[in-house]
């Protein structure tokens, strides 16, 4: 046990600090913070839905929760149930089998809620385009607030997308 804690102490905090090149994000956080606090506090619960992705995006999303990006410091955390969620993070093109589940997930999420579609596939279906198993982009099935481009997008991009979506929140209030 001491060995473990020794290591913990030696390693220190690995989460990358918000350096000067992320000033944009800092600003974004600062901007959005005030607006959305009334609605979602500084707490954002995300339910991730894989609508048919190649799992590339998932890897990046996982990176978001890891020590380096540590999305939790923003009050963002991933939850197990759409009932608990404020935002759906959808990846991939919508496959035939995932169409209904995706819609159901959307319905299961209490208002107010946001949808962020991650990755190129979410918008264009990417290499899966035209496949018999694919229905189309995410917004064909549920309303999407923000698309995050990239194949796969970096965690920072995803984070940016999330924050962008938060920005849209007040308009969705009705």
């Amino acid at each position: 046990m001491p060995a473990l804690f020794k290591k913990i102490l030696q390693t220190g905090i690995v989460t990358e600090p918000l350096g000067p090149d992320e000033a944009e994000i800092i600003q974004l956080v600062a901007q959005v913070d005030r607006k959305v606090q009334q609605l979602l506090g500084r707490a954002l619960a995300i339910r991730e839905v894989d609508a048919g992705s190649c799992n590339g995006c998932e890897l990046e999303i996982t990176g978001l929760t890891g020590p380096v990006y540590d999305s939790e410091r923003f009050g963002i955390h991933f939850v197990a149930s759409p009932r608990h969620a404020d935002m759906l993070l959808v990846t991939g093109p919508v496959t035939r089998n995932m169409e209904v589940p995706l819609r159901k997930t959307y319905e299961a999420t209490p208002d107010p809620k946001l949808v962020v579609a991650v990755g190129d596939c979410a918008k264009t279906c990417g290499v899966f385009k035209g496949s018999y198993a694919v229905i189309g982009s995410i917004d064909k099935v549920i309303p999407v607030d923000v698309f995050v481009p990239g194949c796969p997008p970096e965690p920072a991009d995803i984070l940016r997308g999330i924050l962008a979506a938060l920005d849209r929140m007040p308009t969705k209030r009705t």
Binding site: G12, I13, V14, D70, E72, R73, G75
Partner: peptide, 10 residues
């Protein structure tokens, strides 16, 4: 979070 070497939520 700190023990996991993360910054963590406040």
């Amino acid at each position: 979070a700190r023990l996991q070497n993360r910054r963590g939520a406040p």
